[in-house]
Design a protein around this nucleic acid. Sequence first.
DNA 1: GCAAAAGTGTTTCAGCTACACCCATGG
DNA 2: CCATGGGTGTAGCTGAAACACTTTTGC
Lengths: 233, 233
Amino acid sequence: MQPGLPLFESVFTIDCVIFGFQEGELKILLIERNEEPYKDWWALPGLFVEHNEGIDVAAERILYELTGLRDIYMEQLYTFGEVNRHPDGRVITVGYYAMIRLTGHKELKPVTNYAKKAFWHPVSDLPTLAFDHTAIFEKSLQKIRRKISYQPIAFELLPEKFTLTQLQHVYESILNKKLDKRNFRKKMLNYGILKELGEKQRGVSYRAATLYKFDRRKYAKLFQKELSFMKED
Amino acid sequence: MQPGLPLFESVFTIDCVIFGFQEGELKILLIERNEEPYKDWWALPGLFVEHNEGIDVAAERILYELTGLRDIYMEQLYTFGEVNRHPDGRVITVGYYAMIRLTGHKELKPVTNYAKKAFWHPVSDLPTLAFDHTAIFEKSLQKIRRKISYQPIAFELLPEKFTLTQLQHVYESILNKKLDKRNFRKKMLNYGILKELGEKQRGVSYRAATLYKFDRRKYAKLFQKELSFMKED
DNA sequence: GCAAAAGTGTTTCAGCTACACCCATGG
DNA sequence: CCATGGGTGTAGCTGAAACACTTTTGC
């Protein structure tokens, strides 16, 4: 620590809610802790922030250590600094959330020492989590529910090529309600931010659907920054 | 600091964007710094968080020290943790924003030692601020612009009794655009969350306007939590 | 031929927008 | 009597919601 600053120091961590979409369900990545406190509990992946490490960089570090992925969609969520949130003393944590593409064959990397293993858990059926991690998760879900109505985050969870039905399932699992198929398609195609690829699905035992990709260029052109997507209630 | 935690400590502060509405304009409270670094610069009011002090409590402490007010509308904004944001080393800061009622006669309390004085500055014409405080301010403005469209935060800036025109001016100054008077009134009254008091304005040299108050009870009953207020663009 | 999902239009309704004039009051 | 802001209604448009049947494909 440099001179000039007073000695008000605090212990300080990052916790991360990592969303993925698998088997038609929204899931998050949990680890099983291998250390006290909360040994053997499920928890959000987290780490201590090092000196002279920016918090965004630290958040990316977690993600890389766990999944081997870089350049992932990731946003800061909220900072949790209640005195009693950690049994060993005042630990402030900054929550982040991330969204990753689970292409099925992607394996989780061997997990760091403080965790036994990591698993994808459906958000509809989470166990009780360590610390205040349940609250952090709930805040993240609130945030993406709101965000999906004005930013194109659904595409972060899908492979590059996807069908409209897959896209609809992402919206439905985040918003936790059924949407009307015709209205969804009409609206989505009207935005003009999907590019229809010439291709169709392969290897399905029913009528193959048209594949689309998200056209970032058009999106950026149409809306400098935002877009009113999907009504909220 | 308690045993059991590793020695990853960080210096850690709170900075606060305090909004007020005065003379028909949206303003924020700035202090003039009396200490290095950035001595003599304008800055957001901030402080170091003490050990065993929750961050929300610390944020309320700033507000009380500067304004003598408690029980104020206040929300966490974002956490800024870039390595180079503070010239003396890595200082993480949690930004908050608050909204207070400036009833005109309310004086600012004598300011703490690190500041010479505090002033209300119109947000439309802010000086360059110390550290990354300009970025913190801009994020807070973005946030309340979005928030005013789904939560009744405008009332936090007004006295208990207000006219519809005053309310409209609050919306206009936050959204930074003119609104149509008839449409604004129709919509606002339709929500059914304003209570018409029997009274009229006094001491104005034109037709006195009807006074209203925000009916929190009705608001809570109608919308458990949220409301789609004012379209966003 | 059947199971499973793809794909497709129209009507109705609510809420947003645009817009201009008379009224009450104090000085 | 004049200056200042208070207060009011309607018509047109746009976007959301509701709703059911035919098509394609693999097996």
